[in-house]
Design a protein around this nucleic acid. Sequence first.
DNA 1: TCATGCTATGAAACTAGTTGCATATCAACT
DNA 2: AGTTGATATGCAACTAGTTTCATAGCATGA
Lengths: 186, 186
Amino acid sequence: MAGVALEHAILVSLLEQPGSGYELARRFDRSIGRFWTATHQQIYRVLKRMETDAWVTAEEIDQDGRPDKRRYSVATPGRAALTTWLREPVQPETVRHELAVKIRGAAFDDAAGRAALISEVERYRADHETTLSRYLAGEQRDFPDAAELDDGQRLQHVVLRGGIDYERMVLAWLDDVLDTLHNLSR
Amino acid sequence: MAGVALEHAILVSLLEQPGSGYELARRFDRSIGRFWTATHQQIYRVLKRMETDAWVTAEEIDQDGRPDKRRYSVATPGRAALTTWLREPVQPETVRHELAVKIRGAAFDDAAGRAALISEVERYRADHETTLSRYLAGEQRDFPDAAELDDGQRLQHVVLRGGIDYERMVLAWLDDVLDTLHNLSR
DNA sequence: TCATGCTATGAAACTAGTTGCATATCAACT
DNA sequence: AGTTGATATGCAACTAGTTTCATAGCATGA
C-alpha cells in the first residue's frame, strides 16, 4: 500500500480540480508531470479501480462539439485514503538517471561515441532550457503576487520552485559535463 | 530495446570492475545507486538473462571463509550492445517525486497532518544531509587530485558532482519547503 | 551450543508501468 | 468528399520492478 502512489497523485489533482481521465493525462504532461509521470492508459485503468473502490465518483458529461466525457470527483473514502497516505513516511526515491549511466559508459566508447554523446547532451540541455522557460512563464502567470496567495497556491508554488531549482541545477551540471567531455585526454 | 537500461547500467559497472551479483547489488546501494537503483533479485535475474545472451561470462570463485560466488565479466557481444545503446537518444526522465505530491496534498489535510508533514520533511532533510556528506567524503577519497585523473575517473567524477549538486539543491529547496509550511495561514 | 549477522544466490507471486492497437466524435481545412 | 488533428476512452499483451520467502556457508560472540 505504501508505495502505490499514482492513486494519490490523482487524488491530489482531482481535489485541486475535478476532471476527466483525458484532462488528468494532460495535467500529468504539464503541471503534475513535474513530479509524477503517467500515461493515459495507466490513468484510465487506475481511475477505474478507484471508482470500484469508491475513492472517486464519475459523472457523465454531454459536450457539444466533442465526445462525451466522464468527470471524476474525489469521494469521502478517497479523501480518507489520501489523509492516511499523507501521514505515512516518504519512501526513498528510486532514481533512474539514464544520462549519468551513459556518461560513465563513455569511458568504454571511442571518439565517435563521445562526439555522439556531446551532441546528445547538448540536445538534452536544450530540452531542459525549454522546460525552465515554461516553468518560469507558469510562475509569472499563476503566482504573480506572492502576498495574495492562499495556502493551496503557496504549496503549489513551493513545488514549482523546486522544479525551477532542479532545472537550474541540471543546466549548470550539464555545462560541467560538456566541459568535462570536451577536455578528455584521448 | 531503447528504455531497457538496467542491463546497460550493469554493463558499465562490470566494465569498471568485474564482480558478482551480490557485489553489484551493493554497488547499486552505493555508487551506481546514485543514478540507478535496483534490488538484488532484479540484478540476479537480469544477470542470468545477460549470461544467456552471452553479454557476460561467469566464473565460479571458491572463497575461503565465505560461500562461493560467480564473478561476471563483460563479453564482446555485451560490449557491442553497450556501444549501440550509448549512441541512442537519451529517453526523457520519468519523475516520481512522492514528497512533492504530499506537499501539494497538504492543502487537503488539517493542522495535525501538516505538523506530521513538517516532521517528515525534517527527517527527509536529515537523510539528504547524510547523503551529501557521504558524497563529499567519497569525492575526497576517490578524486583527491583533479589533475591526476584518467578519463574514466573524470567521467565518474563529473557524475558524482551531479549527485553533490543535486543534494545541495534539494537541501536548499527543503529549507524553502519548511519555511513555506511554517508560514501557512491556517 | 545457540543466536546473530554478513555473505551469497535464487524461486515464485505479485504489482506497476509501457507499448501497440482500436474505436469514436466532431471541427477545420483541402 | 476526404484528410488531418484534437478530444475522449479503452483492451490486450508485454516488460519491468517489488515483495516475500527459502536456502546455505561461515564468523563472531554470548
